[in-house]
């Protein structure tokens, strides 16, 4: 059984109508941010969720942790149905499921000391018998994420730290309760490239040490190289291709994935790559294109693409793509 099972997850945000529009009987519109997403993450695995801005990847991450309520679908983590729980049950269950946010400064309370921020999850979930013991645990965690000396960092406020240090604090806070599943939402996107690789390495080490299952959300395919076992590519609220890291990188099937891969910078200047640039802009998710959502921008568009929705086809073992090019 997979650690995380996501089935047909949907989130439709209602678009605000004016009172007059409602009186005139204009229909309520919805932004289909996430529109039927399904995937599994095995225990100890890191699944990369890749897509451009507005593809619904962050919303998917929040839905899985039930930080926002889903319109439809189900999520099972460690065999427990997240959406069948009561508010109190999910609150207790948050010990096992955590999130690392993109912007560490915004994610930390400016009036709370770093140490107290990391200790708070322990207090909430009654881990450790005394404040003294909890403090020891926080010290150990601070040391583990390389914020040394820990007693000095314990007393600091978030604004007194650098961006990389803050993100280490956020990671420490997320992992102190030893969660089974962590969503890393663009966890390194705000950092300098040099610090980014350090933090990716730290996250990978901690993941192996604590045996964490992870959903790694990013818009940057290059960062998935370091940490992800499998990758799911998302476009306009739907997953278009899932495969192992090698499948996606070396043998991308979906035209959108091909475009994404071709946009990753190639370190070797002698290797000339042909760049595939999708035509036009990302369509409006209020009124997505018919059939395959990518068809208006696709360079291999066929007649059928605008008429029917494609299904997932397993092109090779563990590599699935949702495109008519591969449907028989």
């Amino acid at each position: 059984m997979a650690m995380v099972e996501v089935r047909n997850l949907k989130k439709h945000f209602p678009v605000k109508r004016t009172f007059i529009d409602a009186m005139l009987g204009k229909p309520q519109l919805y932004v289909k941010a996430v529109d039927g997403v399904s995937f599994d993450i095995e225990e100890g695995e890191v699944l990369g969720l890749v897509g451009e801005s507005g593809s619904g990847k962050t919303t998917t991450g929040r839905l899985i942790l039930r930080l926002i309520e889903a319109t439809e679908g189900s999520v099972k983590i460690a065999g427990k149905d997240v959406y069948a729980m009561s508010k109190e049950e999910i609150r207790r269950f948050r010990k096992e499921i955590q999130i690392i946010f993109q912007d560490p400064l915004a994610a930390l309370n400016p009036y709370m000391k770093v140490g107290d921020a990391i200790m708070h999850p322990l207090k909430i979930h009654n881990i450790g018998s005394s404040d003294k013991e909890r403090k020891r645990m926080v010290y150990r965690m601070l040391e583990r994420v390389n914020l040394t000396p820990p007693d000095e960092f314990y007393m600091r406020y978030p604004k007194e730290l650098s961006g990389g240090q803050r993100q280490r604090v956020v990671i420490a806070r997320a992992l102190i309760t030893r969660p089974k599943f962590v969503v890393a939402d663009e966890a390194v996107a705000m950092l300098d490239v040099s610090i980014r690789s350090q933090l990716l390495k730290l996250m990978l080490d901690l993941k192996n040490e604590f045996n964490i299952t992870m959903l790694f959300i990013t818009h940057d395919l290059a960062t998935t190289k370091y940490i992800c076992d499998r990758i799911a590519v998302m476009y306009l609220g739907k997953i278009v291709e899932v495969g192992t890291f090698h499948h996606i990188y070396e043998n991308p099937k979906h035209p959108y994935t091909q475009a994404l891969i071709s946009a990753v910078p190639e370190p070797d200047p002698k290797k000339k790559k042909k760049k595939i640039i999708p035509q036009g802009e990302v369509p409006n998710p209020i009124n997505p294109p018919s059939g395959c959502r990518f068809h208006p921008r696709c360079y291999k568009v066929m007649d059928i693409c605008s008429k029917k929705e494609p299904h997932f086809v397993e092109v090779e073992d563990e590599h699935k793509v949702s495109c008519f090019l591969y449907e028989k």
Binding site: R94, D103, A107, N109, Y111, M112, P121, I124, H125, A174
Partner: peptide, 24 residues
Amino acid sequence: LYVEGARAIGAKRSTILLKYVLPN
């Protein structure tokens, strides 16, 4: 975001109000 962060670590409403909202 830090209020959502507090929710994500499983803080109760009253805790969020007193420890995360009130000081700000």
